[in-house]
Amino acid sequence: MVSPAVEGVRSGVLATSSEARGGEQLSLRADALLARRSALGDRQAFAELVQRHGAALYRYSVRMLGGAHHAAEDALQEALTKAWLHLPSFRGEASVKTWLFRLVANECLTMRRRRGPTAVDDKVLVSIPADARSEPDTMSLATDLRDALDVALGELPWRQRASWMLREVEGLSYEEIAEILGTSVAVVRGQLHRARANLAFRMEDWR
């Protein structure tokens, strides 16, 4: 069963109270303050953290689990539950955002190990010949390209895919990615280089 918080992330709407505290809107508070208030049991503060970062966390989960939305929801729900339980011991050595991403990344990896690899249909990677496209067909070309990219991403080794997603989609720094994946900046750079090369090869027909 999907929790209300995860359901809010999926729909893009998360209900939060508009009541001001101390003359400030809760939605404008910094992550660090929200984390401290959450650690004290403030559910509204935690809801604001989810609202700030939930969409990115869910997007990452979906891509890392091969587009399996239910599995991504389960992974995100488990990660958010752990975040709520462990916030009192969060020491702030990394940013709250990085910490949340690491929890989600770990849950996705655990779930992927349970499920095993996802079969990939190579036919999706083959582009439609230009002379075979009618005008209505071109309207769905962007969707086809996105689907092909998703398949190509699914072919990448786990760390390459994670590094590419966190850098190219979420725009995180090399240092943040290294923290999330529990590795070094040098390893992240190497994984990204290989991921970009592999994707360029896999997407050759779409150039």
Rank of each mutant, 00 (worst) to 15 (best):
A71H: 15
A71C: 06
A72D: 14
E73Q: 15
E73W: 14
E73P: 09
A75E: 12
L76I: 11
L76S: 09
Q77G: 15
E78N: 09
E78Y: 07
E78C: 04
E78D: 10
A79T: 14
A79S: 13
L80Y: 13
K82F: 06
K82Y: 06
K82E: 14
A83W: 10
A83R: 05
A83D: 11
A83C: 09
A83V: 08
W84H: 11
W84S: 08
L85K: 15
H86N: 05
H86C: 01
H86R: 05
L87I: 00
P88T: 09
P88W: 13
S89A: 11
S89D: 12
F90Q: 04
F90S: 01
R91S: 07
A94D: 14
A94Q: 15
S95K: 07
S95F: 06
V96N: 01
V96H: 02
K97E: 09
T98L: 00
W99V: 01
W99Y: 11
L100K: 07
F101W: 06
R102H: 10
A105C: 04
N106E: 14
N106Y: 09
E107A: 14
E107R: 12
C108F: 14
T110A: 03
M111D: 02
R112N: 06
R113F: 14
R113P: 01
R115P: 02
R115K: 11
G116F: 11
G116C: 11
G116K: 08
P117V: 08
P117D: 14
A119I: 12
A119N: 05
D121R: 15
K123A: 10
K123F: 11
V124S: 00
V126K: 14
V126C: 05
S127L: 01
S127M: 04
I128M: 02
A130C: 04
A130E: 15
A130W: 08
D131S: 07
D131H: 12
A132V: 05
A132R: 11
R133I: 03
R133N: 01
R133C: 06
S134N: 06
E135Q: 13
D137A: 07
D137M: 08
D137R: 03
T138N: 03
T138F: 03
M139I: 05
T143E: 15
T143G: 04
D144Q: 13
D144K: 06
D144A: 11
L145M: 11
L145G: 06
R146E: 07
R146L: 10
D147K: 15
A148Q: 13
L149C: 05
L149G: 01
L149F: 11
D150W: 13
V151S: 01
V151Q: 08
V151Y: 10
A152R: 00
A152N: 01
A152E: 07
L153P: 00
L153V: 02
G154R: 08
G154Q: 03
E155L: 06
L156F: 06
L156C: 04
P157Q: 04
Q160D: 03
R161C: 03
R161I: 02
R161V: 02
A162K: 02
S163P: 03
M165N: 09
R167I: 02
E168V: 07
E168M: 08
G171M: 04
G171C: 05
G171P: 00
S173Q: 08
S173K: 07
Y174M: 07
Y174C: 01
Y174D: 11
Y174A: 00
E175P: 00
E175G: 04
